[in-house]
Design a protein around this nucleic acid. Structure first.
Ligand code: ZN
Ligand code: ZN
Ligand code: ZN
Ligand code: ZN
Lengths: 140, 140
DNA sequence: CTTGATCCTCCAGTCGCTGGAGAATGTACG
DNA sequence: CGTACATTCTCCAGCGACTGGAGGATCAAG
């Protein structure tokens, strides 16, 4: 019932005030009504929407994907294939990032573990960085 | 012997020309000598240095860490504990990123797999995004 | 009425590049 | 020697997703 200030919205959704204004500026949150003194006023729907955005961000969705997901969420009769496709694309993205990081982990372990811990002259970390042929795989 | 142009350095190190200039501007590459007509000229040491930087970037090191690694590499008599510590810190960073991504992967799989594939009204993807209590874990 | 909290707009910075504009110079060919 | 094209120069703006500060207006409590 009672409209919320941006500070209350921020507290209820767990999103910082500048971030809320940023979301508005990029069209992720609709521009809310203002008081006579130009302050933003929000309702309960804004809280849900902002929580949705925050949750999707926490789960790693990009803002463009969230924009699409919000449009879909606003249209309950729409077939859900598009939402699922967005989620699956995100899943694939996560998986490729994991694969890349696992490869990096192997390379960095291979740099640091065999180091004889003497001078830089014989440091395996420096040696590997200076010459890719010491690497396990091609990570170009 | 013969000095290289920035284009030749770019080709030999596999780093784009604007990136080379950017590295110079942030002090990662020293400012090279110039010709009478103000063009940069490089020597073989610049190729090694730039390859080192490129390799470290490919392995995910941040520019600040690379700056430290380059200073260490320039000082062969220095004990190598600092270089190893930088690499180990990077390894820890990679591992925490992997852990976070694995958690995200589990959550996103849990969003997309049980979806009955009907309308948005009953889409599990949208449902989970709207309500964190459907999630497997706390990923806040 | 005063104090302090909250809000407003605008702008700059983060990181690691990337690319464009517009001008100057280098190189190759006829 | 002239002309065309490639390369380089500097400067500046943009990416994504915020974050924070300056400087000013307004609100709520005592
Ligand atoms: Zn070492
Ligand atoms: Zn390598
Ligand atoms: Zn669905
Ligand atoms: Zn969740």
């Amino acid at each position: 019932m009672k409209p919320l200030t941006i500070g209350e919205l921020s507290a209820q959704a767990g999103v910082k005030i500048p971030t809320i204004r940023y979301y508005e500026s990029i069209g992720l949150l609709p521009a809310p009504l203002r008081t006579d003194s130009n302050r933003r006023t929000y309702d309960a729907a804004a809280v849900s929407r902002l929580r949705f955005i925050r949750h999707a961000r926490e789960l790693g969705f990009e803002v463009d994907a969230i924009r699409q997901l919000l449009m879909l969420a606003d249209d309950p009769a729409h077939p859900c294939g598009e939402a699922d496709a967005l989620a699956r694309a995100h899943l694939a993205d996560i998986e490729s990032k994991i694969a890349r990081l696992q490869a990096l982990r192997a390379e960095v372990r291979n740099m640091v573990e065999p180091c004889p811990q003497g001078q830089v002259r014989t440091c395996h970390v420096i040696e590997v960085l200076a010459d890719h042929s010491h690497c396990l795989h091609d990570h170009h």
